[in-house]
Nucleic acid binder design. Structure first.
Lengths: 236, 236
DNA sequence: TAGATTGTTAATCGATTAACAATC
DNA sequence: TAGATTGTTAATCGATTAACAATC
C-alpha cells in the first residue's frame, strides 16, 4: 500500500517543468531553425548563449529538464536538438484547429496557422456575421456558428482560436468546452473560466500595448531625471 | 564628490520595478474597469484577489511599488486606483502610432488601437504593396513606405507597430530607429537589434501557439500516465 | 591523450507568500 | 472605540547563475 502510494506520487511529481522554461523553448526552436538554414551543424551552449543573449547555464539547465541532448566536448547537434524540441513542444504531431471570428484578426491567424508548417491544420472558420459566411479564406470556407458542435466532432478538432469580441467569448467558450475541445487560443480580452482539462492560452494585445506604453514612459522619465541630476551636479 | 555620487546612485536605483509586476498591471487595470462598470465603489485586496485568482499579498505588494493607493480599514477606491494605474502605465498621455504592414494583422491592430480609447492615436499606415496604397482603413490612408521618415517627423510618431514578414523587419526597424522612433511593437518573428533608448515589445504569435501545443500535449500525457498507474494498482 | 563542453550540484539572487504592526 | 484592512517586514519558495566533476 505504502509502496503504491510512493509510485503514484512519483508519477505525479515527475516533471513539473516551470512555465519560464516552456516560454523559452519556442525561442530556442526559432534560433536552431535559423542555424539549420545557415548550415551550422553543431553548437555549444556558450556560442548559442551569445547569439540569444542568455546565459549558457540557462540553456543547459533548460534542456536538461527534458534529457541530455548534448555531448561533452562536442556541444549540441543542431538538427537533432531542433527535432527533439519539436517533439517536446508537440509540434511534430498534427493539431486540428478552427478559428471562431473571421474578421481581420481571424484571417491573420488563418494565414499564420497555415504558413507555419508545424503540424497545425486549419479545419474551419466560423463567424456570426452572415455577410462573411460562405466566403473562402485560404481555401477554408467560413461557416455559420450553428454548425460548431457537429463540426468539432466530425473533424476531430482539438484547438479553437477565439478572435471574437469579449462580449461573446464566455458563451462560445462554454460551447467549445461542451464539445470536448482541448485548448482555446484566446484573443478576447477576458479570462475564460474552463475546467482543468482544457488549456487556455491568452494573447491579450491590449495588455501588450500597455506594457509597451509603460516601458516607453518609464524610460523617458528615467532619462529626464538623470539629465536633471547631471545638470544639478554641474551647477554645484 | 562622494555625496554627489551617492545622489546619482540613488536616482539610478530608485525604481527597478520587476518585469513580472509590469505584466500584471494591465490585468489589474482590466478588472478595475469591470468593477467600475458594475458600479463597485471600493474593494479590498482580499476581494480582488478572489476575483483575479491571485493572492491578496501580491496585489498589495505590486501596488506598493508605486505608492500607497489604499486606506486601512477601507480598501481601495476603485475609480481612484483605476486612474492611478492608468498614470503608471502612461495610458493617460497621448501616444501617436503608425502601423507598418497593412495586411490582415495590420488592419486588426488598427481596429484595436482605435477602439481602445486609451490615448493611442493611429496616425498612419504603410505598406509596400502598391495595391494597398491609397486604401483607407478606419479613416486612415495607407501610404507607400518611402514616406516613412518624413511622416514620423511631421506627425510626432512615438510608436510603430511592425506587422510585416520577418525578412523585411530588420531593415524597417533600422529606418524607424534612425527616424527617432521611441518604441516598436514587433509582430515579426525576429529579435530586433535596437539601441538602449528604443523599446521593443514582441508579440510572437507562433511562440504562443507552440506553448499552447506543449500544454495540450503534456496535459494529455499526464492524464494518460495517471490512468495507466491507476489501472496497474487495481490489477495488483 | 588533452581540450572542450556537457550534465548537474551548489550558491546566489529575486519573487511570492505569510505575518503583523500601523492606522483608518 | 473596535473591526477591518492596508503597508511593510520577514520567511519561504523558486528560478537563475556559477562552478566543477564527468566524459566525450
Amino acid at each position: 500500500m505504502d509502496f503504491d502510494r510512493e509510485k503514484v506520487l512519483k508519477v505525479e511529481q515527475q516533471k513539473t517543468i516551470s512555465k519560464a522554461v516552456i516560454t523559452r523553448l519556442p525561442r530556442y526552436y526559432r534560433y536552431l531553425g535559423e542555424l539549420i538554414e545557415e548550415g551550422v551543424e553543431r553548437i555549444s551552449s556558450n556560442d548559442l548563449s551569445v547569439r540569444m543573449k542568455v546565459t549558457a547555464s540557462q540553456i543547459r539547465q533548460d534542456l536538461n529538464n527534458f534529457g541530455g541532448f548534448g555531448q561533452q566536448g562536442y556541444g549540441y547537434n543542431v538538427k537533432y536538438l531542433y527535432s527533439e524540441i519539436a517533439k517536446i513542444l508537440g509540434i511534430d504531431r498534427q493539431h486540428n484547429l478552427i478559428i471562431i471570428g473571421a474578421g481581420n484578426l481571424g484571417q491573420a491567424i488563418a494565414n499564420y496557422a497555415n504558413f507555419e508548417k508545424r503540424g497545425f491544420v486549419l479545419k474551419g472558420m466560423f463567424d456570426v456575421n452572415p455577410r462573411l459566411v460562405g466566403l473562402v479564406v485560404r481555401g477554408v470556407e467560413i461557416r455559420g456558428i450553428d454548425d460548431l458542435e457537429n463540426f468539432i466532432h466530425e473533424n476531430n478538432v482539438q484547438i479553437a482560436a477565439l478572435t471574437i469580441p469579449k462580449s461573446k467569448a464566455a458563451e462560445i467558450a462554454q460551447r467549445l468546452v461542451n464539445s470536448g475541445i482541448k485548448a482555446i487560443w484566446n484573443f478576447a480580452h477576458v479570462d475564460l473560466q474552463v475546467p482543468d482539462d482544457v488549456v487556455v492560452e491568452n494573447v491579450h494585445l491590449s495588455e501588450s500595448l500597455m506594457r509597451l506604453s509603460y516601458r516607453v514612459c518609464s524610460l523617458q522619465d528615467r532619462m529626464k531625471q538623470e539629465a536633471e541630476k547631471l545638470r544639478e551636479m554641474e551647477n554645484q
